[in-house]
Amino acid sequence: MSTLPDLATLYPPLGLVVRAGELTLRPLADADLPEYAALLRRPIFADPTAPEVFPWYRADPEERELDALRFQWRLRCGIGPEEWTLAFGIWADGRLIGSQDVSAVRFAARRTVTSGSWLTLDAHGNGYGTLMRQAMLVLAFDHLGALRAESSAVLGNAPSFGVSRACGYIENGTQVSTLPGSSEVEQRFLVTPELFRRPAMPVQVEGLNPALRGMLGA
């Protein structure tokens, strides 16, 4: 009897793994989603009324979970050379603590990625926010060939600004938020391979095979 291939073989994004120090980043699989949904009920922001709180986080927990699951499935369906988002779960010593995404539009031509991230409140203060961003940038710059990485955060969001600056980003103007349900003014940031402040430990990337490179336009 023949053995069927696993899902990561059939759908290459699910085989991608990035490791840096205590952290493991990999796209969320269906088996991870119950743990991910439970994570969304935990505090992420010290002040849940602050301007930087994500609009989706303001929803009731049940609605927040359902929308998050729909969002994850929709992202997977949308991965292709013209546009893609890889939504990584962040595990610290085997415990899911947050999310780091990286996105691109027409990556083959633009060589530009954007990103967003969050950690549960009890995971703050350990350097994880900086390290997971650095790990994502190593993937983008060293393995995918990106030439620019952009990010943004609501004005006054000092922790996010601090992570960006620790990774070597420079300020790049302002914008009105593009997040659904938000009209907050955001500070934009930009980093290039030359400006990038690399992590102290090595970053390992596994599963970036030719099939996945083709899906990402890399």
Results as ranks from 00 to 15, higher is better:
Pro159Lys: 04
Ser103Gly: 03
Val154Met: 06
Ala218His: 12
Asp122Ile: 07
Phe54Arg: 06
Thr3Trp: 00
Val138His: 00
Trp56Asn: 05
Val102Ser: 03
Ala153Thr: 09
Pro159Asn: 04
Gly181Ile: 05
Asn126Glu: 08
Ser160Trp: 14
Gly80Phe: 09
Leu4Gly: 14
Pro43Val: 03
Asn209Trp: 04
Ala218Glu: 11
Leu190Glu: 01
Leu121Pro: 01
Gly15Asn: 12
Thr3Lys: 00
Val105Gln: 14
Ala140Met: 11
Pro13Asn: 06
Gly15Asp: 10
Glu52Tyr: 10
Gly127Pro: 08
Leu144Lys: 07
Ala38Asp: 15
Pro81Glu: 01
Met136Thr: 15
Pro199Phe: 09
Arg213Asn: 10
Leu155Gly: 03
Trp56Pro: 03
Thr174Glu: 12
Leu25Phe: 03
Ile79His: 09
Arg110Cys: 00
Thr130Gln: 08
Arg165Ser: 14
Pro180Glu: 08
Glu206Lys: 04
Asp47Phe: 07
Gly78Glu: 10
Tyr57Cys: 08
Arg133Met: 14
Ala166Met: 05
Gln134Tyr: 12
Leu121Asp: 03
Gly129Phe: 01
Val53Thr: 12
Ala8Leu: 05
Pro5Ser: 07
Arg95Gln: 05
Thr112Ala: 03
Ile90Trp: 08
Gly214Ile: 11
Ile79Val: 15
Ser103Cys: 01
Leu66Asn: 13
Phe141Trp: 14
